[in-house]
Amino acid sequence: MTRKQRRLSVIAGGLAFLGAATGLTFYALGQKASYFYMPADLTTASLQPGQRIRLGGLVEKGTIERGQGTTVAFSVTDNQKQVKVTYTGILPDLFREEQGVITEGIFRPDGVFVADSVLAKHDENYMPKEVADGLKSRGVWQESKK
C-alpha cells in the first residue's frame, strides 16, 4: 500500500465508523425514546401494543389502593380523563393525592397502565415540568410561585 492509499483507507474507516455511530444513534432514538402523554391525550394517540410511554398527571383523590404487599394501584388524572395505574415497589417520598406524578411503563391489554417507575416532585415548590405544562394548557392548575 502506498502512503496515499493508506491515508485514504484510514479516512474511509473513520467515516464508516462515524456513519455507523450516527445510524445507531438515530435508530436508538426511534426505538428507545418514550413519549409523554396525559390521560386525555391517550384517546387521540395511536399506541402500539407494548410501547413504553410516560404517563403524567395528578394522583386522583381517593384512588390510592395498597393491595397485598408491595403493589399499589392509583388513578392518574388530568381532570378530564383518568387512567388506572399499578406499580410494584416503593413510591417516592413525595407521592401524595392530588400531586403531580410521572409514571413510566406500558399498557396492559385490559387498559391498566403497568408502571415500572414513578417519579414525583422533588420538593414542595416543584411540579414535574411536563405535568405542569400539560395542566396549565388545560387550565386546571395555576403556578403558585413561592
Partner: peptide, 24 residues
C-alpha cells in the same frame, strides 16, 4: 438535547432515558 428539539418543533414530549444510552 433531542427531547428539547422535539418539543420545540412539535407538540410531542418525549424522554430519552437509559435504554437509548445503553444501546448507543
Amino acid at each position: 438535547l433531542y427531547p428539547l428539539v422535539v418539543e420545540a418543533v412539535s407538540a410531542d414530549k418525549i424522554s430519552v432515558g437509559a435504554p437509548f444510552f445503553n444501546l448507543t
